[in-house]
Design a protein around this nucleic acid. Sequence first.
DNA 1: ATCTAGATGCGAACCGTTCGCAGGTACATC
DNA 2: GATGTACCTGCGAACGGTTCGCATCTAGAT
Lengths: 140, 140
Amino acid sequence: MASESATTIIATLRHQGVRITSARRAVIAALVRTDGHVTAEDIATVVQTQAPEIHLSTVYRTLESLEELGVVDHVHLGHGSAVYHLAANRHQHLVCENCKKVIHLPGGLVEELARDIDSRYHFTLRPHHFALLGLCEDCR
Amino acid sequence: MASESATTIIATLRHQGVRITSARRAVIAALVRTDGHVTAEDIATVVQTQAPEIHLSTVYRTLESLEELGVVDHVHLGHGSAVYHLAANRHQHLVCENCKKVIHLPGGLVEELARDIDSRYHFTLRPHHFALLGLCEDCR
DNA sequence: ATCTAGATGCGAACCGTTCGCAGGTACATC
DNA sequence: GATGTACCTGCGAACGGTTCGCATCTAGAT
């Protein structure tokens, strides 16, 4: 799945009646460019190299809107700030509780567990919203 | 698995060379008594009905030590404060992202996933340290 | 009874995030 | 192109949860 371009995302947003401001352009551009797990602060830093007036709180608010619109996800890695990425590259995270290393996993891994939990507890897992914690090879 | 009594826990701690102070007694007693998912603040409140001078920061420090000694676990439910419980009743949590309801699961549920992740990524899941987020029956 | 490493109480600091408000800007409308 | 207004922004202050520094105290070894 190729990652969406900034222009595509902007077109989608405009189509949904969302105002395209320079701050939003900048945040989207940053997300598309970095394409990893970045914190709001990371995004602010990137964005501010071009447009220093864009405030961290605007970045938070923009990310919040983008998430409501289904364009980005945020994940809590179990320590420190949440990280954000484009919903298009949704995936799972393993996080080492010792060295904090993050390992990306393909999205499908948890599906069996999700089915099991659904049938037994009538609960729909949304696995991309949480990280799987544990110990990596080096730390265990 | 019967939950350990406060006296048993204290004996274990003493045996490991840990000082038994009145604050620690009180925190352990509170944990044994409530036996659910309580926040540090909850514990402080309980403890302070008997011993008002025990400070929230002491509760945090005590919980930290108890966790290092393997007596308690803490879990981040994805929003708000972490919750603590005795390691003896280790279990899994489903948390509804909408209504915040918490469902307890037996510990073994994630084992297959854990084995899978271990063999593919050489990573040891510690599933009791994170909640599984999603949507409950009523909210989905 | 004495000593000392370690635990405590207290408040201030911290970090990540949210909020309130006054001013600014996108875009629908003419 | 000018105008209006709902929405967005910048800013700083506040927030909730947790950690820290420091002076004092105390458990338990001697």
